[in-house]
């Protein structure tokens, strides 16, 4: 698979380390009254869809940036690549 890095252009997926579902960006609030339940779901449960999947890849052998890759997990086709920091900020996170 070739990942089209927003800053560096097309890179071989072997340069990257895979983490998993991009929902891992949305870390729950540890002070919420139901934080225990929220953290259980956040850490252990996954949608695991058969189709488009937004997921976190780390450019470990490259510029060490985190990317959000939208990929079809049935065909392995990569549909979109964003910087994870942009995605996090657009969801209201400070960094």
């Amino acid at each position: 698979m070739i990942i089209n890095h927003p800053l560096l252009g097309p890179r071989d997926s072997q340069e990257f380390t895979y983490l998993g579902d991009a929902s891992l960006i949305d870390r729950p609030d540890w002070q919420a009254p139901d934080a225990v339940d929220q953290f259980h779901d956040y850490l252990y449960l996954r949608d695991n869809p058969a189709g488009e999947h937004r997921e976190l890849w780390f450019h470990e052998q490259g510029d060490r940036s985190w990317l959000v890759v939208t990929r079809n997990v049935v065909t392995h086709e990569i549909l979109n690549v964003e910087l994870a920091s942009d995605v996090a900020r657009s969801r209201g996170r400070s960094k």
């Binding site: 998993g20 949608d47 695991n48 058969a50």
Partner: peptide, 18 residues
């Protein structure tokens, strides 16, 4: 490998990735 897909019919999310 289809566990998440089939159990989603019962509204469940599983501690599983395929």
């Amino acid at each position: 490998g289809s566990s998440s897909k089939v159990m989603s019919h019962a509204g469940m999310r599983l501690p599983i990735e395929s």
